[in-house]
Design a binder for these strands. Structure first.
Length: 469
DNA sequence: CTATGGCACGGATT
DNA sequence: AATCCGTGCCATAG
């Protein structure tokens, strides 16, 4: 009787797979690798049948390997296309040394310290001992998005320090690198980021009011109402909203800004990383898709064996349920990783020029196209691409969705044209010039791109070239 | 009169 | 179904 039970449970879980659990896979697919981390640790915590073993396996040759990418497969690979690995995400903790070897350029952006350490390092110099204690406490109490869960007063009383001290520390923390960290809520976080941008002279005057006064309308995208109350145009409201979306990140723990200009090294953990082939200059690109944690996830075989021996039906059921859930989770996770891998592979395959070059090399493509080629549903692509970021070989971190920006290349051309112009060109002239580059866009559209790029209209763009010799 | 910005509509994308 | 994006047309500033 015990035996049959087990087999039933197992086969049942496999047959059910398609319907209900596809949605689970989808949920996982939507998650950033950072989010995936917490999801995973939750699951492991309350499911004893699930375990994470500290070993990495090459997804292609299945060998256990020490570092990604797998050197063996790397060497065998022809020039067929990019090599894409699902790699465990580099851990925060002490693993500083061994992971560095395959991270070529530019480690401004990534160093394997924890977020808390990273922030603390920045603020520590300007704090005294007591304040530092407060900072440490605060950083330890952040949720997975980087928000502060406790109120100032609570912290103060718990630590027996003055409220003003806590406030002071908070002020500093929020301005530290993942800007907006330790904010109490999304609005506050966005405001801090905005403030910092303002100081660098690349703010947007309307954005502030949008966040404070019109938060609700902004959520509903009721731009008209905002425009009326503020006596400004709907267009400028839209632009401000766009500004917010593009340049601010609601969750400090995953701040990303793609704005071309602010090249200063920002700290961020991408979900995908592309590198040039370390072994051959012109070899295929090597891509890592990060998944949660380190090592590989599996159903704990010891538990599985143990369950077979349990006699009491009650306990047996309980454990079988654990096993089933574990198996399911592992499966969904693999499926998720695999989907990510296929999608990213295709993206990289299609856009090598953009990855190695600049904005102007982006070839227009749509999620739908990829969906068709991969025989996935287009919403799958959307989920996989939304809210994820990729680190290019030059160190630039951009949202994966930028690959689907229809006008990026055109905007790049506009910027180039304006930069090279002898004397200020009107939008009309720019539009004409764009034809030479193979883009045909309406004059009105040029105007839009211009304002997106923060370029002033022609009449305000007096050229100071004359002085040359 | 010319160059731009405002608004709204329609088709494409998600 | 909800959004995004490019455009055309019109108003206004210079």
């Amino acid at each position: 009787m015990p035996r049959t039970m087990t087999t039933q449970v197992q086969s049942a879980s496999q047959r059910q797979m398609p319907a209900a659990h596809l949605t689970r896979t989808m949920q996982l697919l939507e998650k950033t690798c950072t989010d995936l981390d917490s999801e995973l640790s939750n699951e492991i915590n309350d499911n004893p049948a699930l375990e994470m073993v500290d070993e990495m396996r090459c997804p292609d040759c299945k060998r256990v390997i020490r570092t990604f990418p797998c050197q063996i497969c790397l060497n065998q690979h022809g020039a067929a296309g990019p090599i894409v690995y699902v790699a465990p995400r580099r851990q925060n903790h002490s693993a500083a040394s061994d992971s560095e070897e395959y991270l070529s350029n530019d480690n401004r952006i990534r160093n394997p310290e924890s977020l808390a350490e990273h922030v603390l390092k920045q603020v520590a110099p300007s704090l005294d001992k007591q304040e530092r204690g407060v900072a440490e406490y605060i950083l330890a109490r952040l949720d997975e998005h980087g928000f502060l869960l406790e109120h100032t007063a609570e912290i103060a009383s718990y630590l027996r320090v003055r409220i003003s001290t806590v406030k002071k520390v908070l002020e500093l923390l929020r301005r530290a690198d993942p800007v907006g960290i330790a904010s109490e809520n999304v609005t506050e976080c966005l405001l801090t980021q905005l403030e910092v941008l303002d100081k660098d002279g690349m703010g947007n005057p309307l954005a502030h009011d949008l966040l404070t006064e019109f938060w609700e309308q902004l959520g509903r995208r009721d731009f008209g109402a905002i425009a009326r109350k503020r006596h400004v145009s709907v267009e400028s409201v839209k632009l401000a909203a766009q500004f917010i979306k593009r340049n601010l990140s609601p969750y400090p723990s995953q701040a990303h800004w793609n704005n071309a200009e602010s090249a200063s090294g920002r700290y961020f953990r991408p979900d995908v990383e592309v590198q040039k082939n370390p072994h051959a200059e012109d070899g295929p690109l090597v891509v890592q898709v990060f998944t949660a944690a380190r090592g590989s996830l599996r159903v704990n075989p010891t538990v599985r064996d143990m369950v077979k021996r349990i006699e009491e039906p009650e306990k047996k059921d309980e454990w079988s349920a654990y096993l089933e859930r574990a198996a399911l989770f592992v499966k969904c996770m693999r499926q998720r990783d695999n989907a990510m891998r296929r999608i990213v592979r295709l993206i990289v395959k299609r856009q090598p020029a953009f990855i190695l070059g600049d904005d102007s090399d982006l070839i227009p493509m749509t999620r739908a196209e990829l969906a068709e080629e991969l025989e996935l549903h287009e919403s799958t692509i959307s989920r996989a691409v939304a809210s994820k970021t990729i680190c290019l070989p030059n160190g630039r971190i951009i949202p994966l969705s930028l690959f689907f920006d229809r006008s990026l290349a055109v905007r790049a051309a506009v910027r180039k044209i304006v930069n090279d112009e002898e004397k200020a060109m009107t939008d009309e002239q720019i539009a004409t010039k764009l034809v030479d580059y193979g883009y045909k866009v309406a004059r009105r559209t040029v105007a839009k791109y211009r304002s997106m790029l923060g370029i002033l209209p022609a009449n305000l763009r007096a050229r100071q070239l004359p002085r040359a010799a």
